[in-house]
Simulated scan of single mutants.
Amino acid sequence: MNRLFGTRSSAPKASLGDALNNIDERISSLDVKISKLNSELTTYQQKLSRMRDGPGKNSVKQRALKLLRQRKQLEAQKDQLMSQSWNISQAQMTTDNLKNTMITVDAMKRSNKELRKTYGKIDVDKLEDMQDEMIDLMDQSNEIQDALGRSYDVPDDVSESELDAELEALGDEVEANGELEGESMPSYLTDSAIGADTDKLPNFIDEDQTDAEKKEMVAQ
């Protein structure tokens, strides 16, 4: 069977990139050949410019014409290869764009699937009810704070006349307390008592006595 139909090749198939590289190499090879022909044609042109008309000049012209035909053929091949290279580049670009598009689409599909799983577990109605309940709790908390901060038996307004009366009453109370403290002090400790008896200080035994005082004590 293998002899009739042959064996299936196991070699990897060439990609667009491989084909493009092959064409670029062929174009580079043609550029080298064309450059060589241009150099030879330049040499013939210089030679013909110095030759006189005759059989020798005609022979050189024939060789130059032959090189010119070869160059045109090579340039035609180069143009074809450059067209192929351009087409392959466009095909490769289109393929890459399609691959990128497929990757993007696949990523979007996976993302949408995950989003559906995530948001599918959320009940919007329950979420709104929870928000309403939180608002009610905050209102209740504010009411409780207001109630705890309420003051008792405090007049809303106090006039200047009431303030003057209160200050005068406090002054009278301070004077009355001062008088009571003065009366409770013993009379012998007051400044008046001390000042009155300043001239008659008591004599102490330990102090020196005069002769008259000693005689009076002996007589007693």
Rank of each mutant, 00 (worst) to 15 (best):
R150Q: 14
A14M: 13
S192L: 14
M217T: 06
Y152W: 04
D24M: 05
D31E: 14
I103M: 10
M82I: 03
K109C: 03
V60G: 00
T7F: 04
D136E: 15
D24Y: 05
W86I: 04
E183G: 00
K121W: 05
R26A: 04
L74H: 06
L68E: 11
R63M: 05
R110T: 07
D123K: 15
G195E: 15
M134T: 00
D53C: 04
Q92A: 10
E40G: 00
V32Y: 11
F5Y: 10
Q209W: 15
N142M: 08
N87D: 11
A176S: 06
I205R: 15
D146L: 07
I103L: 09
E128D: 10
L137E: 14
T42V: 03
L180Q: 07
A219H: 11
S39R: 14
K117I: 02
M51L: 12
N58R: 04
D132W: 02
D211R: 12
D172G: 03
N100R: 15
D206Y: 13
S151W: 03
I88V: 12
N21G: 04
R69C: 04
Q131V: 05
E128V: 07
E166V: 01
D156L: 09
R8T: 07
A64F: 09
K72S: 12
V174L: 09
I194C: 01
L115M: 10
L37G: 03
R63P: 01
L4E: 11
A76L: 08
N100H: 12
R116D: 13
R26Q: 12
D211L: 13
T7H: 04
Q131H: 09
I144E: 15
Y44K: 10
G56W: 06
Q80K: 15
E166T: 02
S39C: 06
D157P: 00
A176H: 02
V174K: 12
T7G: 01
K113T: 08
T118W: 13
L170M: 04
N112M: 14
E166F: 08
R52G: 10
K61A: 06
S151P: 03
D136N: 12
R69W: 07
S111P: 00
I23M: 07
T42Y: 12
R52D: 13
D172H: 10
S9M: 05
K33F: 08
V60T: 02
R50F: 15
A212D: 13
L148Y: 01
Q84I: 08
S151T: 04
G182S: 12
L201A: 13
N87R: 12
Y44D: 10
M217W: 12
M108H: 09
M130Q: 12
K78V: 01
G171R: 14
T95L: 15
G171E: 15
Y188W: 12
